[in-house]
């Protein structure tokens, strides 16, 4: 279970000012559940994703984030990854010259090694990767290409879901994975996430729009505004947001 308690985080802006972005987040995602975090621009959605995965540039000033009794905030990014935290990036990064297959196998084996599991050889890996690629209706040459280089927006997002499928995280944080996707790609991505649903898998789906949640039906929906969860509810909350807008919810909160 992912448990976030009273999480505060600040950034330092270019002109040297300190700004608090997260102002006390409380959020629990039990095993097997998918939760959505929605909110207007600037609410702190991406910051939450970055702080959970350990990106530089944020200072956690208070609070905790625990995964199965492990203190995520005390860990390096790769340790969090090995512990099972997966971030699907809003803007997946291009790695020129680095082959996708090489990257994925290196990442998978690094994680397996960290967890004391046996590494996969090239044959085992390929078998796994091909199955995953088929499931996501991607082309086989995906593995031969350089990581995200020359990918369309949709391909990049699908590559993120492919990585997620291979790395099998405990908790997936999807940071606006729906942005820039057409409806077919959206469905494929959603199916990729739904297929991972399992008792030992949970996900935090960060999104601005309700659209994605038609395909990935969340167990709970949380509304993030000005750095706090201002309201939580079932899937119906997402539709309410879509109908009435964030302003109404924020005022009500």
């Amino acid at each position: 279970m992912l448990e976030i308690r009273d999480l505060h985080a600040t950034i330092t802006t270019a002109d040297g000012q300190t700004r608090e972005i997260l102002r006390g987040i409380d959020l629990s995602v039990p095993d097997g559940e998918i939760h959505a975090v929605m909110g207007p621009n600037g609410a702190g959605k991406s910051t939450l994703a970055h702080v959970l995965s350990g990106r530089d540039g944020y200072e956690v000033t208070a609070g905790s984030a625990m995964l199965d009794e492990q203190d995520l905030l005390a860990m390096a990014p790769e340790e969090r990854a090995a512990a099972g935290v997966f971030l699907a990036f809003q803007y997946p990064v291009e790695l020129p010259g680095v082959g996708n297959a090489h990257f994925l196998r290196t990442a998978l084996n690094a994680q397996r090694r960290a967890r004391g599991e046996a590494e996969l050889d090239a044959v085992q890996f390929l078998k796994l990767a091909r199955a995953e690629i088929k499931r996501l209706a991607m082309r086989d040459d995906m593995l031969k290409r350089q990581v995200n280089v020359g990918f369309s927006g949709g391909e990049k997002k699908r590559n993120e879901v492919l990585q997620m499928g291979l790395l099998r995280p405990r908790v997936a944080v999807l940071d606006e994975t729906d942005s820039g996707l057409d409806i077919d790609a959206l469905r494929i991505v959603a199916e990729g996430v739904n297929a991972l649903r399992a008792p030992r898998f949970s996900a935090l789906v960060i999104t601005h729009y309700q659209r994605l949640l038609d395909y990935i039906v969340p167990d709970r929906v949380h509304v993030l505004a000005a750095g706090r969860i201002v309201r939580s509810g079932g899937p119906e909350l997402a539709r309410l947001l879509e109908a009435e807008g964030y302003a109404a919810i924020e005022q009500a909160a």
Binding site: R55, A81, V98, H102
Partner: peptide, 22 residues
């Protein structure tokens, strides 16, 4: 790029090695 690699589980040094080789 470094962060992306580390988020996928690579150590900082492995990530540098991989990016430089790329």
């Amino acid at each position: 790029q470094l962060f992306y690699c580390r988020q996928r589980g690579l150590s900082a040094e492995d990530a540098v090695g991989m990016l430089v080789n790329g």
